[in-house]
Design a protein around this nucleic acid. Structure first.
Lengths: 207, 207
DNA sequence: CCAATAGAGAACTCAACGTTTTCTAACGGG
DNA sequence: CCCGTTAGAAAACGTTGAGTTCTCTATTGG
């Protein structure tokens, strides 16, 4: 049973460190995209990444930690909030970014992880911070600029109002599962976000 | 190995039909309350309900269907929307109801089920309808009465505005996991819901 | 009172978990 | 450039829970 030359895995090139890590993350995301978080198994990930289960478990204590890292690895850089010159344009731009994220593998991973980690407060806290902090933080920045421009009054800016847009969006993508078209985003902005900050939608240019 | 008289299960009283059903639902909810949805196993449910796995599988195809039914079984009757005489009072009352539901076993079951059923559109649709329809429907009724009373203009009532309050609440309970005190509910109502419907909070009596 | 129904419990197969072992490629210090 | 150390691949293993099937019997409707 000597393997044919070149097919014995022990003679094949072997990845390590960051290269192996990336291959594993890629495999995790491919599995989630293909079959969803619930159907993801460590064995399939290992096989897909041509890695061994032992390597996975040396790096992560289990499925949840692995998927969380794989999701973080796929997160775009949020450092720059949109700056289109109008509150309407900025909010629309931000929402488009958020939707892209939530509708993909990252959103699917978040729901799955959350359901599995509710019992573990530390893990749940990590997952929460994952997407939430960024959204509201960016909203604050955007609205802050609108206040500076004189587009809206500082007195109208409260935590709940900053959260309203992102909350509607998350609910739409994660709970209702309905498609989020640009017309939907405009409804959220024009019916909810702008009125809450005292901005008349029709006075604003198309975002 | 003849069992002592009275301990042979085959001679014990045996439940059927609705009685057994209730015992199983109770066991499911107790397991979720104790260890969460993720840790729930059919074997533990069977043991806790003093039922057999075969009985479980005769009634439900799997964990998800069982838990969904157990959650429905725990749903209060939503037929009557609150009617306190003011929009503010009605919205606060509704939100208090919703929070009680989401913070308990039902909320935990919903997140777990959702995460596990994303890949199955039919199942996901069932879960969505579970809590969502009711909330917005009740909001519509409440706001409709406010319009009839002349408290707010009919033109301000849109789908997105009706969803905003429930969305914030759901986000708070399910994603942030932070406690929802009455002060939080009042912020949601006074900062977001009432302004969206053109009602001045300070003109309203305490709900 | 009897036949049909449905439940309890146990045994079973299968899949995935998480661990351990063996062998060896890749890397780094001298 | 060699050699010891580190870390990866594959395979095998014990364990747990899923879902099924079997036997025996309590319950029930006729």
């Amino acid at each position: 049973m000597t393997p044919a030359p070149g097919t014995d895995h022990r003679t094949l090139p072997r990845r390590r460190g960051a290269a192996l890590n990336s291959a594993i993350f890629e495999a995790v995301r491919a599995e989630i995209a293909e079959s969803g978080y619930a159907a993801l198994t460590m064995e399939r990930v290992a096989e897909r990444a041509r890695a061994s289960k032992a390597s996975l478990y040396r790096r992560w204590p289990g499925r949840a930690a692995l998927v969380l890292d794989a999701a973080y690895d796929a997160m775009p850089d949020y450092s720059s909030a949109p700056d289109t010159g109008s509150l309407r344009g900025d909010v629309l731009a931000l929402m488009r970014q958020i939707v892209l994220l939530l509708e993909g593998v990252v959103g699917e991973a978040m729901i799955g992880l959350l359901g599995e980690s509710l019992q573990n407060p530390d893990a749940a806290a990590q997952i929460r911070e994952f997407g939430r902090g960024n959204m509201v933080r960016t909203m604050r920045e955007i609205v802050g600029r609108a206040v500076a421009r004189g587009e809206c009054e500082a007195g109208l800016v409260t935590e709940r109002r900053l959260e309203a847009g992102p909350a509607l969006l998350r609910q739409r993508v994660m709970f209702s599962g309905l498609p989020v078209g640009d017309d939907y985003l405009q409804e959220v902005v024009d019916d909810v976000v702008l009125p809450l900050f005292g901005v008349r939608p029709e006075a604003q240019p198309e975002g």
